[in-house]
């Protein structure tokens, strides 16, 4: 009895530092920002408690829902791109010559800072002397797209570099999972006459389904709170055409001094992210159960 108790306190002692850090850095700020969302606060002066006003405005705020939709689109796009990463990883893991070198090439975008990537792609997309439009012009296209300046395509034009940026990260994880698939299983399948496609589809992918699930969640949640490239490349523009939740929150809080409303948006973002995570987990669980 005594030893158990002492062990508990020892356990507590060991857990405490990280618990305190997590509380200070994550949970307390979450509660606080939820509270700030209840106030009218310009970030400097006095806070005025206004009840649920901000949250009611938020629910009726068209711009918030547009930006939410953009974030969700980005999430869908990221999940779809996982299929591409999976194919690349399958090829890389199949003892291809030079796969080591290719893996390193894929990881390069991840090593660049987001701002550098953004600047790079802004130059590529430049409608007058950018790389893409120069190629299109030389091919004889007369009305070259405006890319980031065109509200209809700006959002999708940003998705591309985002996908490119994280490709290395996903490929590395998938690759690591794939090379851990036991060789015996693959050999056995091969002896039974399975071709490469069957081995990939029936053996490798089911065996790494756990990793895939995690990646789907990472991709969706990461997309929902995505900010960097969008902020640098278009700032959410033109005219909110590429606004996502995080950039909208930033604009409200730091652009307009509406820290109260900004916090409410942040809290909304949290709720939506949690709901998304919960939905995905539920969805993927039922699938693997049967």
């Amino acid at each position: 009895m005594k030893t158990v108790m002492s062990r508990k306190s020892v356990i507590a002692l060991y857990v405490l530092p990280s618990l305190i850090l997590v509380l200070i850095l994550i949970y307390i700020p979450i509660v606080l920002s939820g509270y700030y969302g209840l106030t009218d606060w310009n970030g400097v002066g006095k806070m005025k408690f206004i009840g649920l006003d901000n949250y009611i405005t938020l629910i009726h705020d068209k711009l918030f829902w547009t930006s939410t939709w953009h974030s969700i689109l980005l999430g869908l796009f990221s999940v779809l791109s996982l299929i591409g990463y999976l194919i690349v990883s399958l090829i890389l893991a199949s003892k291809l010559k030079g796969s080591n070198l290719l893996r390193k090439i894929y990881i390069i975008p991840m090593l660049l800072s987001s701002v550098a990537i953004a600047q790079l792609w802004v130059k590529i997309y430049d409608p007058n002397n950018g790389m893409i439009n120069s190629i299109l012009t030389s091919l004889g296209v007369e009305h070259t797209p405006l890319w980031l300046a065109d509200p209809k395509i700006a959002l999708y034009a940003i998705f591309l570099p985002i996908v490119w940026q994280y490709a290395g990260f996903y490929i590395i994880i998938l690759y690591a999972a794939l090379i851990n698939v036991p060789e015996e299983l693959i050999e056995a399948a091969r002896i039974d006459g399975a071709n490469a496609f069957q081995i990939a589809y029936k053996i490798k992918i089911p065996l790494i389904s756990g990793v895939l699930k995690v990646l789907v969640i990472l991709a969706v949640v990461g997309s929902l709170k995505y900010f960097d490239l969008i902020y640098v490349m278009t700032g959410g523009g033109p005219g909110h055409a590429s606004e996502v939740m995080a950039s909208y929150m930033y604009k409200e809080a730091f652009g307009k001094f509406n820290f109260g409303y900004g916090s409410a948006i942040g809290f909304g973002l949290l709720v939506i992210s949690m709901a998304a995570t919960w939905l995905i987990q539920k969805f993927l669980k039922t699938k693997s159960d049967d």
Binding site: A149, P151, P238, G239, H240, A241, G255, K256, F257, N258
Partner: peptide, 20 residues
């Protein structure tokens, strides 16, 4: 005010982008 100023900037971009 910061609030109107930010809106003004948004509206300027939208005016140039023919969104309004």
């Amino acid at each position: 005010s910061p609030n109107v100023s930010e809106l003004h900037h948004d509206m300027m971009t939208a005016l140039f982008g023919k969104q309004v």
